[in-house]
């Protein structure tokens, strides 16, 4: 049975979780809303859509893959020994207060990083040590379109807990047994039938708020349409204003491209994995100087074709959760929804 917690008890609950887990929660930080590590007592903001998606908790922007160390024995100066050790990010973690679109983003990562292909050990370790407490979204923004890409603002099947705000109270549904362990009996009250009905009503109201900018159709047909539109002159037109910055990729809950580089400090150092962006021209620049995606429309076309075609072909999944961050944060107002609509209609 779901339980309920009053808004003014949320910090007590979070403090209790934070005593056992590394805890991520949405918080206001100097004019930005960010999913950040929680420190006891800090005010959380459940009404904002954090600037960055929840991917950063499971796929950090900068992450150590391994550490290496060269050793020299002074008696044999001509010889060098080398040892390496893999990072093991197995800290118990709770991601708390994220919207269903961000939960979809995490499910997407599972498909790509721990699916049929090579397994991403680091994501796998983090994911298996992480619980997710989602919150039903009652704050659709003008850029939201989760339903158009198969999502829902009020359900998050891959989360462990689902919160629904009703006035000054949150109804908390445990979706998994592990999720149920997070519910601290002392802080919660039982939920009566009336409140369950109220919860249903809140969810239904949230559903009716969303606009649907396009009808996607079946995934294979979408993949096909994007593939056929590869040579369309529309890409150049649609990306004329694009600045080739990394905002859309960095704020995206499904963009997962990365770079691997070494950071040396004398005889030791780390191999790092950092977010990369397919919108940067240096992303595909080869040592020879050749660049298969030298022009920005080629990069933008690849980004969208990846999300709406290649991922469907390879993983049977759509690379978009409809969170709308790329639209909201694009400095030059490029609206992915209108581009999708155009390609689907072409």
């Amino acid at each position: 049975m779901p339980k309920a917690i009053m808004q003014d008890k949320l910090n007590d609950w979070l403090d209790s979780i934070a005593s056992k887990y590394q805890l991520w929660a949405p918080q206001d930080k100097d004019g930005a809303c960010l999913l950040s590590p929680y420190t006891p007592g800090a005010p959380v903001n459940l009404k904002c859509r954090p600037q960055l998606s929840a991917k950063k908790a499971l796929f950090p922007q900068t992450e150590c893959l391994l550490k290496y160390q060269y050793h020299k024995d002074k008696s044999k100066p001509e010889e060098t020994e080398l040892s390496i050790s893999a990072a093991n990010p197995n800290q118990k973690t709770v991601i708390w207060g994220i919207a269903p679109c961000d939960v979809s983003g995490i499910s997407f990562f599972e498909n790509v990083f721990i699916g049929a292909g090579y397994q991403d050990t680091y994501f796998k370790t983090r994911r298996s040590n992480t619980l997710i407490a989602a919150i039903a979204c009652q704050h659709a923004e003008s850029t939201c379109f989760c339903e158009a890409v198969g999502g829902s603002p009020v359900s998050a099947p891959d989360a462990d807990l689902l919160l629904t705000r009703i006035d000054h109270e949150y109804v908390v549904e445990a979706l998994t047994n592990e999720g149920a362990t997070l519910i601290d009996e002392g802080l919660f009250t039982t939920v009566e039938e009336a409140k369950l009905n109220a919860m249903q009503q809140v969810k239904e109201a949230a559903l009716s708020k969303l606009s649907k900018p396009f009808e996607l159709g079946s995934l294979p047909s979408v993949a096909d349409k994007f593939l056929k539109a590869f040579e369309s002159p529309y890409w150049k037109e649609a990306t004329a204003a694009c600045l080739s910055c990394g905002i859309c990729t960095f704020v995206c809950p499904t963009c997962y491209c990365f770079n691997i580089t070494d950071e040396a400090q004398g005889m030791h150092g780390q191999r790092l994995r950092c977010w990369d962006a397919c919108m940067f021209s240096t992303y595909t620049l080869e040592a020879s100087g050749h660049n298969p995606r030298n022009i920005k429309f080629q990069r933008y076309r690849n980004r969208l074709s990846h999300k709406f075609s290649y991922l469907i072909t390879n993983n049977n999944v759509l690379g978009c959760t409809g969170c709308g961050r790329c639209i909201k944060e694009c400095p030059v107002g490029i609206d992915l929804r209108s581009i999708i609509s155009h390609i689907l209609a072409e």
């Binding site: 991403d120 593939l227 590869f230 990365f258």
Partner: peptide
């Protein structure tokens, strides 16, 4: 084919030509 590659595992994303990854 040669492409700029990083992971070699089909995960880092950069070596694709359409849905195919040169690395895998």
């Amino acid at each position: 084919l040669e492409r700029r590659m990083k992971c070699g595992l089909g995960l880092c994303g950069r070596c694709n030509i359409g849905p195919k990854y040169v690395c895998i």
